[in-house]
Design a protein around this nucleic acid. Structure first.
Length: 586
RNA sequence: GGGGUGGUAGUUCAGUUGGUUAGAACGCCGCCCUGUCACGGCGGAGGUCGCGGGUUCGAGUCCCGUCCACCCCGCCA
């Protein structure tokens, strides 16, 4: 029995013709005589009818068959009798009257129901991922993922990009995330690292003259997991030569908008919006603002210090800042109980609380601040924050990081709470001009904000000597609805500038040669001006599929403690294997 | 590393103030049923209450420890 078509492809056009379908038994409805089966494959369902009076073979299968058995069945397609069509089913108009069928394999009762709305705990589903993957939801997402990958390959190929594979066994680098290490058997005591990204290789491909490179590639970072973070994940990695930032943005906007159009049929407005890092932090407190929420943050530090409200005055005297967000017209949504809960909303970010101002119909304030500060000061703040009756304002005062982190989160939280955030909207944004360096207070040194190969802004080179933290980088992120889709930079192509950056990072000449000698060499052999970007492919699929968890877009994901419940990895290994690798466990 | 939530039948859950034999629904098994599609009817099986210790006459319930899953902070150039 050879399959003639997929289940969901059997339609009214096939009436009177003979078909053979193969698949899994989704449901079985036994009427004592006739047995109805919904047969499932990757396309969907079709109802097949087993009438025991047809012949002995059909009678036997009808009796023996159970859910999730694998079946091949042949018969003639016919319209269902009058009044028996099922409008909830793609193939509900027809059914296949089976006269020949075979159980290809039996199946144990599955630990959970293979269905769209399966309620089993994720832990159980991860252990039996091969069964979970039978569910139509996950099948749809993986097919979407396939389609997206195909689109990306086609678009980039059409734009002259060449897909090149880079090593998975590579060299550990000191900067950035923790590496996954692979011991070398041949070179005792030495280790490969799995790539955090193919960063250096793609730059070397530019030096080699490939001009436009891409790769859909696995990357590895040994850091703690989150709902949108896995230890191994996939990037669309891209690098180009002889293009400036604007050229690159244009090609990438075409890629992303085309991807949205091709996979989910959504038109993204072009060009994408732009914002500097400094503006993003100022207005939203974060470098990946969710622009679906209309409210902006406003700094009101200058009004405090001698305001009479000692809590804020003290914070400002110690160099802290005060910022506020005005939820226009939302006062009524905040009864006392909700206001009290705000403390818990900002607590994870280190804020002691979020002070509120409710603007009454007569313009007066209902606020812990109302009695503490003068009417004149109230007026000035009201003007600054555009406060009108019915507004509610939340204020946080603390060190800048705490204020920005907590208000950035609170702003989106409030937007969702007040219903002003439209989940269906897609707000894309390029964030540009990131700082080149960040200061690591723990290690007392500068670290690269993006990575050590990012070009400083040419206008800011002099700042290396005076104020390194003010140096802007030619680095950028693409942000969608508060989530980072990707980021990249124009790279350093001069070994002089590269040395300058290494020096600023406190990487000695000798260490730089040791760790990155091949890159410095390459830059000195005629490196073209180049730059690129990398997109988190899994996150793109999350957006397209509308899922909350990255595990939903990966066929075989890991748990939040980085283990695989299905194959029980990682696991202990034989003593012999360790010996070969010159490894002794402590 | 820190905080939070959860873990009871195959699955999803309930389980009172610590009290006799730990329940429900779905699923599963058997029988009946020839037009169902959440088919229906009758009957039945199914439990290391995550694991270890403690308190108690008595622990699913209280205490201590521990493991696992999920979410958040730190971390993730």
């Amino acid at each position: 029995m050879k399959r003639t078509q997929y289940c969901n492809d059997v339609r009214a056009k096939d009436v009177e013709s003979r078909v053979t379908v193969c698949g899994w038994v989704d449901t079985r409805r036994d009427h004592g005589g006739v047995v109805f089966l919904d047969l499932r494959d990757r396309t969907g369902l079709v109802q097949i009818v087993l009438n025991p009076s047809t012949n002995d073979a059909v009678a036997k299968v009808a009796h023996d068959v159970r859910t999730e058995f694998v079946l091949a069945a042949s018969g003639v397609v016919r319209l269902r009798p009058d009044g028996n069509a099922n409008p909830n089913m793609d193939t509900g108009e027809i059914e296949v009257m089976i006269d020949d069928c075979e159980i290809l394999n039996r199946a144990k009762t599955p630990p959970f129901e293979i269905s769209e709305d399966c309620a089993a705990a994720e832990e159980t589903r991860l252990k039996y991922r091969f069964l979970d993957l039978r569910r139509p939801n996950l099948q749809r997402i993986l097919m979407l993922r396939h389609k997206a990958a195909q689109y990306v390959r086609r678009y980039l190929s059409d734009h002259g990009f060449i897909e090149v594979e880079t090593p998975v066994l590579t060299k550990s680098t000191p900067e950035g995330a923790r590496d996954y290490l692979v011991p070398s058997r041949v070179n005792k005591g030495h280790f490969f690292a799995l790539p955090q990204s193919p960063q250096l290789f793609k730059q070397l491909l530019m030096v080699a003259g490939f001009d436009r490179y891409f790769q859909i590639v696995k990357c590895f970072r040994d850091e703690d997991l989150r709902a949108d973070r896995q230890p191994e994940f996939t990037q669309i990695d891209i690098e180009t030569s002889f293009l400036d930032r604007e050229d690159l943005f244009k090609i990438m906007e075409g890629l992303i908008s085309g991807l949205w159009k091709d996979t989910v049929g959504v038109d993204l407005p072009l060009p994408f919006r732009r914002m500097s890092y400094a503006e993003a932090i100022s207005k939203y407190g974060i470098d990946r603002p969710d622009l679906r929420v209309p409210w902006e943050l406003k700094e009101i530090t200058s009004h405090f210090g001698k305001s009479g409200f000692s809590t804020f005055d003290g914070i400002v005297e110690k160099g802290g800042i005060v910022k506020a967000v005005n939820c226009k017209g939302m006062m009524e949504k905040f009864p006392r109980s909700v206001l009290d809960a705000m403390k818990d909303v900002v607590a994870p970010y280190g804020a002691k609380g979020a002070l509120y101002i409710r603007v009454q119909p007569d313009g007066s304030w209902q606020s812990p601040l109302a009695k503490a500060i003068s009417p004149e000061l109230q007026k000035a703040i009201a003007a600054e924050l555009d406060m009108t009756p019915g507004d509610i304002v939340f204020i946080v005062a603390d060190v800048p990081k705490v204020v920005n982190d907590s208000l950035a989160f609170l702003r989106v939280h409030l937007g969702k709470f007040c219903g002003v955030l439209d989940e269906k909207q897609s707000e894309l944004l390029w964030v540009t001009d990131f700082p080149l360096l960040d200061y690591d207070a723990k290690d007392k040194r500068y670290v690269a904000m993006h990575h050590p190969f990012t070009s400083p802004h040419p206008d800011d080179i002099a700042l290396f000597e005076t104020d390194p933290l003010k140096i802007r980088a030619l680095a950028y992120d693409l942000v969608l609805n508060g989530s980072e889709l990707g980021g990249g930079s124009i790279r350093i192509h001069s070994s002089d500038v590269q040395s300058k950056v290494f020096r600023a990072l406190g990487i000695e000449e000798k260490e730089a040669r040791e760790k990155f000698g091949f890159l410095l060499d390459a830059l000195s052999f005629g490196a073209p001006p180049h730059g690129g970007i990398a997109f988190g492919f899994d996150r793109l699929i999350m957006m397209l599929a509308g899922t909350e968890s990255i595990r939903d877009v990966i066929a075989f994901p890991k748990t939040s403690s980085a283990s695989d419940l299905m194959c029980d990895a990682p696991s202990a290994v034989d003593a012999r294997q360790l010996k070969d690798l010159h490894i002794k466990l402590t």
